[in-house]
Design a protein around this nucleic acid. Structure first.
Length: 414
RNA sequence: GUGGCUGUAGCUCAGUUGGUUAGAGCGCCUGGUUGUGGUCCAGGAGGCCGGGGGUUCAAAUCCCCUCAGCCACCCCA
């Protein structure tokens, strides 16, 4: 047991795990490309205000989960807890309002100071997609369709449910908030302590409380749809109609809310019960007010983010790397020849593992451990005859092959 | 920040009511094979029993503290 441990909530991605992550990221790149998305990368840290101003002063992310520090110039810097604010900042900094609409994906590490548990770490990875500058509900339809397509390509869509809700526009949302506060206030004495706290800070959050007592009260709470004005209702109807046309199955969930302040209208989550308490695989919604709130031009946006670790846990084990050819040189002169041949074969497109040290037995064992399809053995005998001994690692058959035709012979193991 | 469970070899785990030198499987190393892996046989290395303190003639085992891991709450991807 080593005393040198990684920082709590961080993990090394060793090759097997790395392959899983890569599969998730490769998949989002490939699928989103078909929808016309391009990848952007923003810094993993930003000035603290980028997150503090946009995520809402009362959100837990801002109040207790940010990794914030002062750099040597005295600026307050924060490791990004999510990437939508970073993309919005890049949109403003780069003057991208000239080239709307924009469709971006991103991927990379995010940081939140939380207690680790299943599917949750302090440094974790997200992939995300954003459409900027489209007022039409069609953008929401496309962004959700992309999410479904992405999960399908990973082979996990059948284990996921698309839950959908609308928060309405800011007027509807404010009106709903009022009736909701009235309702819950009249039952305040029966609410859980957590929910009483939420009543003042973020009353809509009470709706997804897990407390049994709360659930009884929530069951009779006013529905958000009853507070919708015509605009909000029309927008939501358009999203639903679009999803049906696009062939994306959904379940309405009027209790689905968003923790972050900048969301409006469409809110959705692809959830699963395969990962314990952490059900959200892909989550997002519309954020028409965000960019303006950050000081940019009024620009609508819609998007989602997905947890790479969570998806990596759900996908089938990716295939092992292709089997290499093991190159074994025995003796000083032969080792030089082996290196020459190795580079020649690599440039010809073969995967070649060069044995570094040890006797024949050791090198053969190494060849076996790297799952080599064949071993190419060069010793003094071979050198003298200008041949190589090629051993098929599966059958154990081996034969001498003239160096001139080595590439042709090895083609079968490629 | 709160709660529950768990920390023994590189990995997965045994270890009795506290009692001699803490074990197994897998992996690793050496040999059986002078230039042949994967199977087989023989042998070997590897442990401050998470860390600290306490109780006791005696602690992996009991008590306290602490750290870490897992799971759950809050919150969230």
């Amino acid at each position: 047991m080593s005393s040198l441990q990684p920082v709590r909530g961080t993990h090394d991605l060793l090759p097997d795990e790395n392959r899983r992550h890569r599969r998730v990221i490769d998949t989002v790149r490939e699928v989103s490309g078909r929808y016309g998305f391009d990848e952007v990368t923003t810094p993993i840290f930003e000035k603290t205000e980028v997150f503090a101003r946009t995520l809402g002063d009362t959100s837990d992310i801002v109040t207790k989960e940010m990794y914030t520090f002062e750099d040597k110039s005295g600026d307050s810097i924060t490791l990004r807890p999510e990437n939508t604010a970073g993309v919005a900042r890049a949109f403003i900094s780069g003057g991208l309002a000239q080239s709307l609409p924009l469709k971006f994906i991103y991927q990379g590490p995010m940081f939140r100071y939380e207690r680790p548990q299943k599917g949750r770490q302090r440094q974790f990875h997200q992939v995300g997609a954003e459409i900027l500058g489209v007022e039409s509900a069609l953008a929401d339809v496309e962004i959700i369709a992309l999410g479904a397509h992405f999960l399908d390509a990973l082979g996990v869509l059948d284990q996921a449910t698309l839950e959908l809700n609308s928060l309405g526009d800011s007027d509807s949302r404010a009106a709903y908030r009022e009736v909701l506060v009235d309702y819950f206030s009249s039952h305040k004495d029966k609410l859980s302590e957590d929910s009483r706290e939420r009543l003042g800070r973020n009353p809509m959050r009470i709706l997804d409380s897990k407390d049994q007592g709360d659930r009884v009260i929530i069951a009779d709470a006013p529905q958000i749809a009853d507070s919708f004005n015509d605009t909000s209702k029309a927008f939501f109807d358009a999203v639903l109609a679009g999803l049906e046309t696009a062939g994306v199955a959904y379940t309405l969930n009027s209790k689905l809310v968003r923790g972050l302040d900048y969301y409006c209208h469409t809110a959705f989550e692809f959830t699963t019960d395969a990962l314990g308490a952490q059900g959200a695989l892909v989550a997002g919604g519309r954020y028409d007010g965000l960019i303006k709130q950050m000081g940019g031009p009024q620009t609508p946006g819609t998007g989602w983010a997905a947890g790479v670790e969570r998806l990596a846990m759900m996908i089938e084990k990716p295939e092992d790397a292709a089997r290499p050819i093991a190159m074994i040189g025995l003796g000083d002169e032969a080792e030089v020849k082996a290196l020459t041949l190795t580079q020649q074969l690599r440039h010809a497109g073969f995967r070649v593992e060069l044995g570094y040290s040890g006797n024949m037995k050791k090198r053969m064992k190494r060849a076996n451990n790297v799952n080599a399809a064949a071993a190419v053995i060069i010793g003094d005998d071979e050198l003298a005859k200008n041949v190589a001994t090629v051993r098929d690692m599966e059958t154990g058959d081996q034969l001498e092959v003239p160096l001139a035709s080595l590439e042709d012979h090895l083609a079968r193991y490629r």
